[in-house]
Nucleic acid binder design. Structure first.
Length: 204
DNA sequence: GCTGAGATATTCT
DNA sequence: GAATATCTCAGCC
């Protein structure tokens, strides 16, 4: 297919995540008949700058694919019930990635609605775990390529995105000047979650 | 509209 | 044992 566009994407993904992340906004991620336009992402560096990254403490069985070559998917399971989808960036061994936080369903919306009965259209992929559900992504797709033949497919944007906003994550002192999170301004599908409330497990 | 708590796999201490 | 890159639901304003 679009070899030139794929090479361009591959070059983007091979670079630093903080440069790759905003360029993924407005691109499309497809699985089967379902496609989502990416509206919000978050960068995770494997270079030891981000203590919150899964890669910060080195490779494990779970995050092994994040240390693989760029242009592949890293799918992990968290909180016992949710999957999250990352695009691996930077050369193999670094462990960088871009977390897809939110998007807008642009194809296969009927399928996505079936997966999320009762959800409003703009909520179908508004949030990292909702996005993976709308796309029916699970660990079977961990490590699969997104720029080659396969179930998952990353496509370049077809229209210019509007204003891109970004913000540093508070509380990461060693990287306070790096904006980790990027989203498309005024897009209704951007996830509204802001606060990171540490949950007291009120378990007796 | 907002808030708080529960669910539960994998990993690290 | 405790924490985590979360979502959903019930209950209240």
């Amino acid at each position: 297919m679009s070899g030139i566009a794929d090479r361009k994407l591959a070059r983007i993904l091979a670079g630093p995540v903080v440069e790759a992340a905003p360029q993924l906004l407005g691109c499309f991620i497809s699985h089967g008949d379902t496609s989502i336009r990416i509206t919000e992402v978050e960068a995770y560096s494997g270079r030891g700058l981000d203590p919150a990254s899964h890669a910060h403490r080195g490779p494990t069985a779970r995050n092994a694919s994040q240390f693989g070559p760029p242009g592949h998917a890293y799918v992990y399971f968290t909180y016992g019930m949710h999957y999250c989808l990352n695009i691996v960036c930077e050369p193999a061994g670094i462990g960088g990635g871009v977390l897809l936080r939110a998007g807008e369903v642009v194809a296969g919306i009927d399928t996505a609605r079936d997966r999320r009965p009762g959800a409003r259209d703009r909520d179908l992929a508004r949030g990292p775990a909702r996005l993976t559900r709308a796309l029916d992504v699970d660990r079977r797709l961990d490590g699969s390529p997104v720029l080659a033949d396969g179930p998952l497919r990353l496509s370049p944007r077809t229209d210019p995105v509007g204003v891109i906003e970004s913000g540093p994550r508070t509380g990461v002192s060693s990287a306070a000047d790096i904006p980790w999170r990027f989203w498309i301004a005024d897009d209704p599908t951007v996830s509204p979650y802001r606060r990171h409330v540490p949950r007291n497990r009120t378990r007796k």
